[in-house]
Design a protein around this nucleic acid. Sequence first.
DNA 1: CGACTTTTTGATCCGATTCAATACGCGTGG
DNA 2: CCACGCGTATTGAATCGGATCAAAAAGTCG
Lengths: 254, 254
Amino acid sequence: MTAKDDTKVIPLSKIKIACESCSLHTLCLPLGLEGHDLDKLDKIIRRSHPLKKGTGLFHQGADFQSVYAVRSGSLKTFTVADDGSEQITGFYLPGELVGLDAINDNKHPCTARALETTSYCEIPFTQLESLSGELPSLRRQLLKIMSKEITHDANLLMLLGKKTAEERLASLLLSLSSRLKNRGFSETEFNLSMSRNDIANYLGLAVETISRLFTRFQDQKLIKVEGKFVHILQIDKLKNMVSDCAHSKSAHAK
Amino acid sequence: MTAKDDTKVIPLSKIKIACESCSLHTLCLPLGLEGHDLDKLDKIIRRSHPLKKGTGLFHQGADFQSVYAVRSGSLKTFTVADDGSEQITGFYLPGELVGLDAINDNKHPCTARALETTSYCEIPFTQLESLSGELPSLRRQLLKIMSKEITHDANLLMLLGKKTAEERLASLLLSLSSRLKNRGFSETEFNLSMSRNDIANYLGLAVETISRLFTRFQDQKLIKVEGKFVHILQIDKLKNMVSDCAHSKSAHAK
DNA sequence: CGACTTTTTGATCCGATTCAATACGCGTGG
DNA sequence: CCACGCGTATTGAATCGGATCAAAAAGTCG
């Protein structure tokens, strides 16, 4: 399974094996599909060479052609405002689908860039769309993924709207932790593929604040940090930190 | 067209007229559908009595049955955390679809409540889903709406993550303004159906801050406020306020 | 009209940013 | 192999925006 073998489009016979035997099988689009249906999806999926760190997958404003499933590595998506300021809108881990926000007006509203060497599957959207006409379970899965993205964003809204710096970082760590766990990685030990700057940008905080928080969390023995490597020592305390948002400021909406 | 006439489900003949002649025709789901296809959608749509202010449309945790299109009036959606604190996740105006975020796990992740007397159409999701199998343009429209919601949320993230109180309120006013304009209302004069508290909650600010901002904006002759009524005097200046987020703090990614 | 809620205004306080300076990591070239 | 330089990360001190606390004013409704 060397990535080198993939030139542009993988031969049909190999693709079948790909999706079926892919470890992300139950996380990615194929969920709920089986046998012949899965074959059909396989047929439209393309694999390309892995992206090197810092390489773009698609660019803001580019025409929307495909959605992409991360196979390994990670991506960040961000938008650039007129004044050049950037806002990171998401980090994507293996098994996650990127580019769905482009469906709306057929242009990518953000840029996707590899945070490390990253391999992915490309799924031409037109074909995915018509295939979803045939396959109810694919259709449902697609809607589910989009719905999940909406829910995720809504949570993030809560996060950025109401939470302290401490709660924000704890939330990010926990989010990464649980997503990695789902993907079969350790939930307590992992590498942050993104820089402190990226984290700060994403959470709407200053880099210095992130730095201070990491040392504070470490002093409190909640985590152990060595550069990009994080070891979560007391995951339950982190969780409390997030849920105990004793912000009585809640607008008790009648 | 008195709402009183609708008992539970409108007779078939009347529904047809409803969607076809609805002024929201091009904003709501039917967009892109015509003739026979539109009839098919009509057949599954239900209309009910208008909601009175403060009444719930669906509740957080409730089983997901339908999505809802606002016909007149407005709604807010919010989630309640364990500790009882609330976060408003959105305001919905006529022609907008509510409840899509429930697709993911078949439960509504938030509560929807009327901000004023509000009438709506109910669209049973199972039927919508299977109908979208038949109608490619409906399928596309559905994905588009969801995609738009994702983009919208991403913008909001930017808003809450990076922007000052001033920019946040300006953004909200402009968002309402442009959405109302799309719906044929004035873009410069409208009523805020939500309370200051709701606005504060939504924008992640304190009520007092909202109040001060309204007076400040008024002093600057940007707007004129009389209770819930807002008159935008210099919409271009408001727009500058939002785009000139000269936040050089941007993590220049890469 | 009177009780209650919503909104406004004022004074103080605190968390996070900003500015500034130092330390660390890493790739390049001597 | 180590010295150099540049980007990234950490740490400290000063400042500021918005929250919080407190109280008055304006709506709202039975």
